[in-house]
Simulated scan of single mutants.
Amino acid sequence: MSLTEETISSEPVYDGTLLHVRRDEVRLPDGATSVREWIKHPGASAVVAIDGEGRVVLVRQFRYPPRREFLEVPAGKFDRDGESPLDVAQRELEEETGLTAAAWTALGRTFPGIGYSSETIHLFLAESLSEGERGGDDDEFLEVVRLPFDEAVRRAESGEILDAKTSLALLLAAARRRDT
């Protein structure tokens, strides 16, 4: 039995700078109809960057919707036409931390809000780091934090790191490093 829902109609509810809210009427697998409200998102990339001393480079920043600070891996959304997930990861690592990396490994991707958003986050491991030029957005305030990689993984496993993309990225990076 197919579980696919077919779009009957779609209308914009809100078109913002980042988010575009849609309301779709869909035909369910049993033939009935329903409404799906969802957010169209451009997608993003996130980076687990590990320096030569075995520390992971995180950023601490305030996130407005939950009204608190979080430790996160450097990450950002697709901003330009034709950008690849790796392009975004490389740009965001340098903008947020001032670092570049010579070695990149794709860790996979995740859909953080499957019930309400099309957002996909591509996850990468970055190693062989060098100093680059820190940039960033004018409205983005963050602090670069370096933690021993094993400690950051422990914090993800214990639930101390609350950002889902960061926890998943750290756990995938730890598994990748164990396998090599």
Rank of each mutant, 00 (worst) to 15 (best):
S2D: 13
T4G: 03
S9P: 01
P12V: 13
D15C: 05
T17F: 10
V26F: 08
G31E: 06
T33H: 12
S34Q: 07
W38C: 01
W38D: 00
W38Y: 15
I39E: 10
I39Q: 05
H41M: 04
H41L: 02
G43H: 04
A44N: 05
A49D: 07
I50A: 10
G52S: 15
V57R: 08
L58Y: 09
L58D: 06
Q61N: 07
F62E: 05
E72A: 05
V73S: 06
V73E: 04
P74D: 09
A75S: 13
F78L: 12
D79E: 15
D81W: 12
E83M: 05
E83T: 07
S84A: 03
D87Y: 00
A89F: 04
Q90H: 04
R91L: 02
E95M: 02
E95G: 01
A106P: 08
G108H: 09
T110G: 01
I114V: 14
I114E: 13
Y116S: 13
L123G: 04
F124E: 06
L125N: 08
L125P: 05
A126K: 08
L129A: 10
R134M: 12
D139Q: 09
D139G: 03
E143V: 10
E143K: 12
V144D: 10
V145C: 10
V145H: 11
L147T: 04
L147P: 01
E151Q: 13
V153W: 02
R155G: 02
R155K: 14
R155Y: 11
A156Q: 08
E157N: 06
S158G: 03
G159P: 05
E160N: 03
E160T: 13
I161H: 08
I161P: 04
K165I: 08
K165N: 12
T166K: 07
L172R: 15
A174Q: 02
R177K: 15
R178I: 00
R178M: 03
